[in-house]
Design a protein around this nucleic acid. Structure first.
Length: 321
RNA sequence: GGGAAGAUAGCCAAGUUGGUCAAGGCACCGGUCUGAAAAACCGGCUAUGUGGGUCCGAUUCCCACUCUUCCCA
């Protein structure tokens, strides 16, 4: 069974660079698990473009390379397009299988900060087999939360009891699933076992977590924000606006929404940078909260002097073991 | 030196015509998450400048002080 180290951690913990170094050492290839890096034309603000690092970056059409280490999982969708966790799952499943059969002598590293994607890919969680119904979502969007809850209760009392009743997005998805169940009850029990179990017999995942004190993490993102601001972030967002994506999904996330506001003159530079920093701090907290639920993660402190050596040894023992 | 305005949490900022537990936002901290996840959502957290006075009772009214901002000299 192929052993795959999964390198995870909050933003700014240095996942990518250590993954590249490990890949050089263990002749590996990287599969990214990042919900933002999947979008084309969103490179600087998502950290695809390493700023201030010495990596030589190449953007080949189907993958990127960092110092000749191939990185997959970038540019899977057009910016502004709908791209779900399940879309990622499907893609990643195939990519893992493809890469491992194509060259069994090479190692694979999964690297990412999107816990949801990682847990889906490694089979820790499964999703209901109900695809999004955009027409329905559009309809539900204009309905009040209270009414949505009533509607959900009628369709599925069980779902009603489970959902976070204050979270409209969740309630909408619950309705989406519940109404689908009316048609085909098999989806209830039939989760995404298929694709996940596919991998279970082929791969063994080992979680490697990167962490550090909050203040250190915060300081690092803060510096990153200032760097990208001067190194193409504004141009990148302006370009997305020029493509007519100013009001699209890709402008809803951290960094982009704020730069968008800045370009629209709604916020001044210093405030914009501060907002982005705070948003990222909060994101780091949420990422760490998510990762805490996985007891199988072996954590490494990025502040330790022999950090890289420790991780390297650990990876060595995984691959040897 | 004279005058005006104002002092509420780490920061911004309400309110109480005097009466149980003093809004809200930001930061920070904890948490939720089953096809939007850098999304969406929940919870926690600290305060009435100092000293007097009036009053049953003061954060609110009065006085002094300190500090801040502004105006005039």
């Amino acid at each position: 069974m192929r052993k795959i180290p999964v390198i995870l951690g909050p933003t700014s913990s240095g996942k990518t660079s250590i993954a590249v170094e490990l890949s050089k050492k263990f002749s590996g290839r990287i599969v990214s698990a990042d919900s933002r890096q999947v979008f084309k034309n969103m490179d600087v603000g998502t950290g695809k473009t390493p700023i201030g690092s010495a990596f030589e970056v190449q953007n080949l059409s189907t993958y990127w390379t960092l110092d000749d280490v191939p990185v997959f999982g970038y540019d899977l969708a057009f910016a502004g397009e709908y791209f779900s966790a399940n879309d990622y799952l499907l893609w990643a499943n195939n990519k893992l299988l493809e890469l491992s059969s194509e060259d069994p002598s090479k190692n694979l590293f999964i690297v990412g900060g999107t816990g949801f994607y990682i847990d889906l890919l490694t089979g820790r969680i499964k999703t209901a087999l109900v695809p999004p119904n955009f027409v329905l979502r559009e309809e539900l969007k204009s309905i009040s939360l209270e009414e949505l809850l009533v509607r959900l209760k009628n369709f599925s009392p069980e779902k009603y009891n489970q959902v976070d009743k204050q979270n409209k997005v969740r309630v909408m998805r619950a309705i989406e699933i519940a109404e689908n169940l009316q048609v085909d009850n098999s989806v209830l029990t039939n989760h995404t076992e298929d694709s996940a179990s596919n991998l279970e017999n082929k791969f063994e995942f080992y979680y490697i977590g990167l962490t550090g004190r909050r203040e250190v993490l915060y300081t690092r993102v803060d510096a990153w924000v200032e760097k990208v601001w001067e190194n193409g972030l504004l141009e990148e967002v302006q370009n997305l606006k020029n493509l007519g994506l100013g009001g699209s999904l890709c402008m809803k996330g951290i960094v982009y929404k704020t730069v968008n506001d800045f370009l629209d003159g709604k916020i001044v530079k210093t405030d914009a940078q501060q907002r982005i920093k705070y948003d990222l701090h909060s994101y780091i907290r949420r990422q760490q909260t998510w990762f805490k639920r996985n007891p199988d993660i072996v954590w490494f402190d990025i502040e330790e002097l022999d950090f890289f050596q420790k991780v390297t040894n650990h990876v060595q023992s995984i691959l040897d073991g």
